[in-house]
């Protein structure tokens, strides 16, 4: 729970001043009650809503198929059966590698393009700047389904169907505009005086970007990188249309477990759990970096 500061009740102070100390204690108590009501309980509800399906999925993945059908999930004997089948029978590992390579590609292409684009958007006032920024936002308002047919035709003409490149490019179409917005926001927060100081100190424009702006944008770059990675990792529609054959990503592979007559619940949940692991681990490792504060001390604070 957030705060944590006064989760446990404070013992009443030793009555040094008699009544005032007691009053103080009462006020402390009502304040704690109020916080419990408006902060802690709602937060707990949100956490339960977010985690319950996830835990249910995990629990489903470690019981036998019979137990799943009998909905006997909580008391059943745990088994790793589904996980073993996942990797031995349907070659889930190669799907994971596919997803990983695609996500890394999207992240690399996305960061390169969005950082340089954000630098121009943030630092230069050029003709069409506002228009382009608006276009980048508008792109996000169209359902991505609209782009599938044209993209498919382009990719087939270019002979890229069932390749990493096809999926990377298609994911970039909707991930890069948004990450450019993200990066522009981070760069706008860095005072221009720093660029100018660096320009006078001997940097070229590009030198300023690499030596001053990028180190300071690190939290933003990490956040944008995670966004790009996870967006691509979780994407299903493009991955299945443009590379649904030889080169399945995990989302496509998991979907293929839903057959016409049978749904392999055990494999499905096991795949879902494994699939969600990288994103979870990524977050756990990098969340500290996401909390910025690097620009402290640059200018008068």
């Amino acid at each position: 729970m957030p705060g944590g500061r006064s989760d446990k009740p404070i013992p009443p102070p030793i009555a040094a001043g008699g009544v005032p100390a007691g009053l103080e204690w009462n006020r402390e108590k009502t304040r704690f009650r109020r916080r419990l009501l408006i902060v802690h309980i709602p937060m707990a509800l949100v956490v339960v809503f977010a985690l319950a399906p996830y835990s249910w999925m995990f629990m489903t993945s470690i019981v036998t198929a019979e137990d799943i059908l009998k909905l006997n999930i909580i008391g059943a004997t745990p088994t790793l059966d589904h996980y073993i089948r996942l990797f031995s029978r349907i070659n889930f590992l190669s799907n994971m590698i596919n997803s990983f390579l695609v996500a890394c590609g999207v992240m690399a292409a996305g960061l390169t393009l969005s950082i340089t684009a954000a630098y121009s958007f943030s630092r230069f006032r050029f003709l069409g700047r506002a228009y382009l920024m608006k276009q980048f936002l508008v792109v996000n308002m169209f359902p991505i389904v609209l782009l599938i047919i044209p993209l498919f035709i382009i990719m087939r003409k270019a002979g890229l169907i069932d390749t990493y490149l096809a999926v990377i490019i298609s994911h970039s179409t909707f991930a890069i505009p948004f990450s450019t917005w993200m990066m522009t926001g981070y760069m706008d927060a860095i005072p221009r005086d720093l660029d100018e100081a660096a320009l006078i100190d001997g940097c070229s424009r590009l030198g300023t970007l690499f030596r001053v702006l990028l180190p300071l944008c690190m939290p933003g770059i990490v956040a944008t990188g995670i966004y790009l990675f996870i967006t691509s990792w979780n994407e299903y529609l493009y991955a299945s249309t443009l590379a649904g054959g030889e080169m399945k990503t995990i989302t496509v592979a998991i979907q293929s477990l839903i057959g016409e007559y049978v749904i392999e619940w055990g494999l499905l949940t096991a795949g879902g759990f494994v699939g969600s692991l990288p994103a979870t681990i990524l977050f756990l490792f990098l969340q500290r970096r996401l909390v910025g504060g690097l620009t402290q001390g640059a200018v008068k604070g």
Binding site: P191, D193, L194, E196, A197, A198, I200, V212, P215, L216, L294, T295, Q296, G297, A298, V299, K300
Partner: peptide, 14 residues
């Protein structure tokens, strides 16, 4: 060949 001191100091925070 000039040097400048800014109002905000503009020290590199990193």
């Amino acid at each position: 060949d000039i040097a400048m001191v800014f109002q905000s100091y503009a020290l590199y925070p990193h």
